[in-house]
Design a protein around this nucleic acid. Structure first.
Lengths: 192, 192
DNA sequence: CATTACTATATAAATATTGATATAGTGACA
DNA sequence: TGTCACTATATCAATATTTATATAGTAATG
């Protein structure tokens, strides 16, 4: 499991469950997502296990917030996870599984529609990553060089995100070209 | 959930659970993995739900195999999943989460070691994808053009895999260059 | 004929994850 | 005052997933 470790990483600063969910939606989404209904019980369990501590904080905008911070033990567990080395080979990419079985659609136009939709998703995703980059670079004039540690590593993940989404977009275009060629070919074959 | 649909996709041809696991290890691994202990009960459940049918087949190499094939209903469910459009935004990439929190390691040499290990993983991965491509292209002289439907779509996923892993590898090199520059900078700063 | 390696199926227990739903405070607006 | 939108915390039930383990046949080796 990684969510446990991801929360430990996020809780170097105090945050409430609701806070954390917002961070997932804004940036961690790009490599991991979690629902509130998973976050709340996990925070409670991790506190029971001595990895986190919590306190109530009054709020001006709503009910009192329960903010968590990681303990020294929590930090050790996070560091141990990083020290184990990169966890490669556990990736999960649903849309690729779909493409793998796309021949089941029979109708090539349906495949083309699928791929156009995927392309649109990727284009939106790219825009959102570019927005993040713009925001970060206007927040910090040193961007992307000479950043403090946390921003430095976050920038690295963003850089990979940009590269990969751009590769995806290119690939969608190539797929569409090949699908259309295939469609034309099928038409010719039928008419001869 | 997608494993259910992935199994439906794989069971256009009859396969045993053991078979399916081998296919995961060989190629689906690149976008999804599953253990035997998940596959067996799920196959049983899907059969109970009328999505699959099974029969026992004697084997010359070991105990009798239980092979499953999808039913017409199973195929409809697969097609419905594809028709819903691409499932984007559910990706899970553990190693990127790790990079995001790599600043917790404090010691920049530990970060460099992490990234070198990641680079080695990516290099191996790239080799294995290139092997698959070589195998496919020697199996089918028409590769990668003019392929039958199933091979055509499988080839598309392979093409994306190659693109993304290559992008990852490039990115690792850039990261390493930046980490080393950062290390040199830290040394200078300390000595002045 | 004992051991090892490989093929094959399977279950149990523990965890993780999703999807639906409940509850409540605050601020704005009609 | 009612109600809508938003912030916030939380639980339940249903599923999905991982890790460890059990069982057995076949085939080759010594």
């Amino acid at each position: 499991m990684s969510l446990r470790h991801i929360l430990l990483g996020m809780l170097g600063e105090p945050h409430s469950g609701y806070d954390l969910k917002k961070q997932f939606n804004q940036s961690l989404r790009n490599f991991w997502n979690a629902e509130l209904s998973q976050i709340y019980p996990l925070l409670a369990k991790m506190e029971k296990d001595g990895l986190l501590s919590s306190r109530r904080v009054a709020s001006s905008t709503g009910p009192p917030r329960k903010v968590y911070t990681r303990s020294a033990r929590g930090r050790r567990e996070l560091v141990a996870w990083l020290a184990e080395g990169p966890k490669v080979g556990e990736e999960r990419i649903s849309y690729l599984a779909q493409v793998y079985f796309l021949d089941e659609l029979e109708d090539i136009d349906a495949s083309i529609a699928f791929m156009e939709s995927l392309r649109a998703h990727m284009a939106r995703w790219l825009t959102s990553l570019e927005d993040i980059e713009r925001r970060w670079s206007s927040d910090d004039p040193r961007y992307p060089y000479d950043l403090p540690d946390d921003a430095f590593y976050a920038q690295l993940t963003l850089a990979l995100g940009l590269k990969k989404v751009a590769a995806n977009l290119e690939w969608c275009d190539e797929c569409l070209a090949r699908l259309r060629a295939r469609k034309a070919l099928a038409r010719e074959t039928r008419s001869t």
